[in-house]
């Protein structure tokens, strides 16, 4: 159990690093889908009494939304807005990965120091979820395209989810389902928005949106 949990978390960390180093949005979305799927099976793996109905519900919801629906919408938005690459991010890819390693160290340092009151299978859970949140924030800060921003947002949400199922042992699913629903609506709206922005502006570079502030 522990080994599988470790492998899933390892994949989570690696996929975060991949977001930092990959410019093709399509690949990013695919990886996001994979991340969502792998997070779906995580609830079964992390707590010592493994199986409960809550976790089944959570897993199904997560797999459906994170693994299938969000990526589908994002790809649709990508195709409609006709963007393929994140061109010229504020921070370059190689440096982003190195920066990501730095974030990883910080989150590992933080994560190993946090005291979790009950037994988890893997000590990697807290560090990797913190790292996922930080990666999401970093993408939000460092990327230009609105689509990348959405990806960053979703990555951050994945992190919050992981942290949530780690920390809130008993009743996570109601909270989590609420969040998922919010996100669902959010992504839906953003998909439409991106399409409209790109039609109006011919691009989806969000730093140009600041000219709208007046």
């Amino acid at each position: 159990m522990k080994t599988i949990a470790d492998i899933v978390l390892m994949f989570l960390i690696l996929s975060n690093l991949a977001f930092l180093g990959i410019s093709r949005l399509k690949t990013c979305i695919r990886i996001l889908a994979l991340q969502g799927l792998s997070l779906g099976i995580l609830p079964f793996l992390i707590h010592i009494p493994a199986f409960s109905y809550d976790s089944v519900l959570l897993a199904v919801g997560s797999i459906l939304l994170r693994g299938l629906i969000f990526p589908y919408y994002l790809e649709k938005a990508m195709r409609k807005a006709d963007v393929r690459h994140e061109v010229e991010p504020f921070i370059g890819y190689s440096f982003s990965i190195l920066f990501g390693m730095g974030l990883l160290f910080i989150s590992a340092w933080l994560g190993f120091r946090l005291q979790i009151p009950y037994l988890l299978t893997s000590r990697l859970l807290v560090p990797s979820s913190l790292f996922t949140i930080m990666t999401g924030l970093f993408i939000l800060i460092s990327r230009r395209k609105a689509l990348s921003q959405v990806i960053g947002y979703l990555v951050m949400e994945n992190g919050i989810y992981t942290l949530g199922i780690t920390l809130v042992h008993e009743q996570p699913f109601i909270i989590e389902l609420g969040i998922l629903l919010d996100i669902f609506a959010g992504v839906f709206i953003m998909g439409i928005m991106i399409f409209h922005i790109s039609r109006a502006f011919d691009h989806i570079d969000i730093d140009k949106l600041s000219s709208l502030k007046e």
Partner: peptide, 14 residues
């Protein structure tokens, strides 16, 4: 490089 460093981190956890 990040693979190998990640390896060390996970090792640290184990």
């Amino acid at each position: 490089f990040s693979f190998s460093v990640l390896g060390i981190l996970i090792l640290l956890e184990e």
